[in-house]
Structures are given as C-alpha cells and as structure tokens.
Amino acid sequence: MTPAELSRTVLATVRRAVEADELSLTGPVPERIVVRKPPRPGCGDYATNVALQLAPLTGAAPLAVAGVIGRRLAGAPGIARVEIADPGFLNITLEGESYEALVGLVRERGSRYGIGAHQAPATGDPTGEARADAYAAALRRLHAATGIVPPARRPHPVRETADELRRTLGADATAWALLRPPAEDAPRTDAAEHLAQREGNPLFRVRYAHARTRALLRNAHDLGAGPGTASGLRHPAETELLGLIADFPRTVEAAARHGAPDRVARMLERTADAFLRFHDECPALPKGDEKPSAVHGARLALADAAGTVLANGLTLLGISAPRHL
C-alpha cells in the first residue's frame, strides 16, 4: 500500500464513520488527508493527524475522534495495526504483504516507477541564463513524468554561463548545483563542494548509494543468489527505506505541482541515506560459509527497488546514474 493509497483508505474510513453517524461534523469531510512517516521508530509505518483535523468539527476530543476512526481503520485490507497516541495521532502499521507488493511493483515497473508515460511538452527557447534553462528542462521532465503542468518559476540566477559551469563541474554536478536548492535560494557552484568524492557531498552519496545497489546484485549473482520475495521486512532500517520508496511517486507529483525539482533532490538524499543505513544494518549477502537465505533474497529485492528509485529520480533531474563509481 502506497502513501497515496493509505491516504485514500483513511479518507474513505472517515466518510463511512460519518455516514454511520459515528462522527457528526459541522462542516464537510476534507477532500484530502495527509499520512506521513512518523518522526521516530516504534510509531508504526505511517501516522496521520486526521483526528486533530476533524475534532473542531465534531465538538469531541481528538482522542475520542481517533478512537472512532482507528477502530474502523484497523479492519481495512493491508493494515495490520492502528495505535492511538496523544494528543490524537493515529499510528498505522501495514501488513507485510503490502511491502512485498510494493517492492514487486517497483521491480516490475523499473524505469517507469513514479514516472508515467505522458506526452512530453514542446521544448521552449533557451533564455541564456543557466539556472532558468536548467529549471525549464527539469519542469518539462516533471510534466512528462506526471502529466501535471508545473507553474512557471523564476529561480535565483547564477553568474556563470551553462558552458562555464559544465567545464568546471561537468554536466551532472552542474544540474545538481542548479536544481538542488529551492528556486529562491542562490546556488553554490564551488567545484570543491560538488566534485568531492566523500560523504559530505550529497550528490556523491546519492550516486554512490545507487552504485552500491547494483554492486549488491552483481555480487549476489556471483554467489549464485539473487532477489527473492520481499517478505518479512520488519527491521526499522528496512521499513524506513520501504516508506521512502513508497513515497517516491507522490514526491514526483508534488514536485511537478509546485514546480520544485529540489523536492526530488531532497527525496533522493533521504533515500540514499536510508539505503546506506539499511546496507550497514541488514546484510543482503551471506557472510563466510553462510548460505543464501530467504532473508537475503528479500533484502536484495529491496536493494534493487531502492536502486530503481535513485536512478529514476536522478533521471528526472537530468543526472546520470552510473552502475560503478
């Protein structure tokens, strides 16, 4: 179950509670309900503040509203458990099969995961200002990926020309330097920052994480192993990574809707960091005389899905995703 699907499930649950007179609202049911990853482990896979949002419309305490919604939501397909936390949050744990289906979906769709097959808009005339042209190209890719027409943006310009930046940084680091900051912020174009092959360079971390996902699959193949069914993934590092993978399509849509490619870049950073934690804490390959197991297969499938998200996000930014670094 993706976050968008879970949001729709929560919204449908609220509507059914209203129709059954379990909740009496003085205003309309919200058109959209937000679910997010909880701020710390142990609070389920997703959390929503819908009860806090509805409480003023019911005259009841948020905890009471959360109790009504939680009881109904706990029986919905794909949901394993719903817990209520002060002052009225709903913490939702998904069934393992939902994660299994998510990873399967990502691996099935591959380069199309989070990126639809829409008609690409016509290429506009370049303005000659490096950042404005980079933004325009990124917004065209987001339009083609989602079908959403992004709003025109006026990003903070840079002094250098596009050719000067590419000569200094190369095409990939130039795109990252121009698209990673929000439109209103001035980009930093220092070569020492963007070309450093170290952890402190976000672009290096993202591309390194992608390369590590591909290396895991190559090494598994050499051992006669490979991705399996993504079942039993419950370690906090696994579920954090799964949540980010599930969020990718919604992030792409939000980036298109707001004309903000920097949202994709930040999502890639979070996904890379989550993958590297998963890589360190949840070995996907057997060690020593250990034989490949179903756990290794599940983790390899998750690594493959993470690599797909990283590659697709980089592609949206016009940046290559090398299999080797």
Rank of each mutant, 00 (worst) to 15 (best):
P283D: 13
A171Q: 14
R112W: 11
A137L: 11
T168S: 10
G147T: 15
A321Q: 13
R277I: 11
I245M: 05
L54T: 02
G44F: 01
T2E: 08
P227V: 01
S24E: 14
E281Q: 14
A175I: 02
A20E: 15
L242E: 03
K287E: 11
A134T: 05
F204Y: 11
L25V: 09
E5H: 13
R154K: 13
N49T: 10
V103Y: 03
A260N: 04
A85R: 14
R154H: 10
D280A: 15
G114I: 04
R72G: 00
V10G: 07
D262V: 02
A298D: 00
L300H: 03
C43L: 12
T48I: 05
P292R: 09
L203M: 06
A183N: 07
G170H: 03
Y113R: 06
P227N: 14
A298Y: 00
D125V: 14
L302F: 06
A284W: 03
P157M: 09
R112V: 13
E83H: 12
N201V: 13
G318P: 03
G313Q: 01
E290W: 07
T174F: 04
G313I: 01
A303S: 06
Y46H: 12
A117N: 10
L276D: 04
S293A: 15
T13W: 00
E22R: 13
R40F: 15
L195Q: 03
Q119L: 15
I148D: 07
S320N: 11
A284I: 05
R40T: 14
L57Q: 06
A186T: 15
V34A: 14
P155D: 02
V82G: 01
G104M: 08
L142V: 09
R32H: 09
E31W: 08
I92H: 00
E253P: 01
L268Y: 08
R8S: 10
P38Y: 11
F89C: 07
L276V: 08
A162P: 05
S231Q: 13
E238Y: 08
G75R: 15
A80W: 06
D190R: 09
L73N: 08
F248Q: 09
A55H: 05
A298H: 01
I33Y: 00
G88L: 01
R141P: 00
R140C: 07
E269S: 12
R212K: 12
L285T: 05
D21V: 10
E108L: 15
S98F: 04
N91P: 12
L169P: 00
R140H: 11
